[in-house]
Design a protein around this nucleic acid. Structure first.
Length: 415
DNA sequence: CGTCCACAGGAATGACGGGCGG
DNA sequence: CCGCCCGTCATTCCTGTGGACG
């Protein structure tokens, strides 16, 4: 069969079997649905909290807390869009700006994005953060608005940098004469409150709203509602739906996860040419999602981080279970030598290990071995097969996968 | 009970590339 | 074009520490 006809078959199968999906977009987690089931209470509370701005008053700052996939972002956006529409209707100068602090990355970029929401152009870099803040303040004041600033994943802002930006923002009203600002802080990490300057904390959480995780049956109704829009009539089995809900419920009641499962399960079924999404497709989707997550994370690492992963990889193979910092550095050094590149310092490698730990690729635990020092015990958090798969495509790393580090074959290892 | 290992991880500093305004 | 400031990565130097050993 010619290439063209193979492709033709793929396309026509895909098309005629328009079978599974009606509109897969509604399963993406950035899709904002018309209804948010089981969040009536939270919508009401956020709504009540922000309502005063319609009468021209500054509303309380709000702190929204809840695990991932509990609808914090959705509810906030939902309420704010409607608030803005209402404000427009009655001619009230209300606007809002939503920033995801983790995606923005730095304090500077958060500020830049705030400026952009005022149609203020600022360069990617080159200005001092203070300068950008100043521009924002001036721009905002001359715009004469009641501004609601939603800072999603604020914890990222506090962890990486100081909390100067938050502090400045909570005090910004003191220097504004024509405009007013309210802040909605969104976080999925409650511990972050402990690191926060108490003044900022008290100011930020004038109003506090907690989002409980969804349970399995709530997830089910959420999924069912979306599935109705996403899938063609009868293309989704009851079993598959329930399984998605159950799997996500087991994992902190994460609706985002549930939607991902459902969408990927649909795609699996589609690719298999099935007419109905079954439980087996959900199982498959579960593996696929995890697999992709890990391989992608591994492939995007910097060369040195990859070498650190490989070092642990070799140590796990040679000594069995956990590796300690010193050993890893030893192997890492040798691998660098093999590639003819300069190794980083142990200090640097230590923070790389911490980063890999945060990414869930490694697991590191500080342990004291008493007389024999204090170190970190480190193991792979992903299977060796996956590491192999992700790295074998890298031309530089390929040959290091089956390489036997000399420092391991010496046989002087104790446990 | 104190010592002392083998590191952890904070602070200060520097090199580098990007991007500004003038 | 220059001088300046930024964020990022990396190094250097450093102080801190849990607990087995003696």
């Amino acid at each position: 069969m010619s290439n063209a006809s193979v492709l033709d078959e793929v396309f026509s199968k895909f098309f005629s079997n328009a079978g599974i999906f009606k509109d897969r977009e509604v399963l993406r987690h950035d899709y904002l649905p018309e209804r948010l089931p089981h969040r009536e209470e939270q919508i009401k509370r956020v709504g009540e909290a922000v309502a005063p701005v319609l009468k021209g008053a500054r509303c309380s700052n709000i702190f929204v807390y809840g695990k991932t996939g509990t609808g914090k972002t959705a509810v906030t956006k939902y309420v704010l869009t409607r608030l803005e529409a209402k404000a427009k209707e009655i001619g009230s100068p209300v606007s809002f700006c939503y920033v995801n602090c983790r995606l923005a990355g730095t304090e500077y970029r958060v500020l830049a994005s705030l400026c952009n929401s005022l149609q203020l152009h600022v360069p990617f870099t080159g200005l001092s953060a203070g300068e950008v803040f100043e521009r924002f303040k001036v721009g905002l004041d001359s715009a004469k608005r009641l501004m609601l600033i939603a800072l999603d994943e604020v914890d990222a802002l506090v962890k990486s940098r100081s909390d100067i930006l938050l502090y400045e923002l909570t005090r910004i009203n003191e220097t504004l004469s024509q405009s007013k600002v309210s802040i909605i802080g969104i976080s999925n990490d409650l511990r972050f409150k402990e690191f926060l300057d108490p003044r900022v904390l008290s100011s930020l959480s004038e109003e506090e709203i907690v989002f409980r995780p969804y349970d399995a049956s709530e997830l089910r109704t959420i999924l069912a509602e979306r599935a109705q829009m996403a899938f063609r009539e009868g293309a989704l089995s009851e079993g598959a739906l329930s399984l998605c809900a159950a799997l996500a419920a087991a994992e902190h009641g994460d609706a985002r996860r549930a939607l991902d499962l459902l969408r990927v399960a649909g795609e699996v079924a589609e690719r298999r040419g099935a007419n109905v999404v079954k439980e087996e497709h959900v199982r498959e989707a579960e593996k696929l999602i995890e697999h992709n997550r890990v391989v992608e994370a591994l492939a995007n690492l910097t060369l040195h981080s990859k070498l650190v992963m490989l070092s642990v990889f070799h140590l796990v193979r040679a000594n069995g279970y956990k590796a300690v910092t010193g050993e890893i550095y030893e192997v890492y050094n040798e691998l660098c030598g093999e590639l003819g590149i300069a190794p980083l310092t142990q200090r640097r490698v230590s923070t790389l290990v911490n980063e890999l730990d945060a990414l869930g690729l490694l697991n590191a635990q500080v342990t004291s071995m008493g007389r024999y020092g204090r170190t970190k015990k480190i193991r792979l958090e992903v299977t060796r097969t996956l590491v192999k798969e992700a790295f074998s495509s890298d031309s530089r790393l390929g040959r290091l996968i089956d390489y036997e580090p000399r420092c391991l074959s010496q046989g002087v290892r104790k446990n």
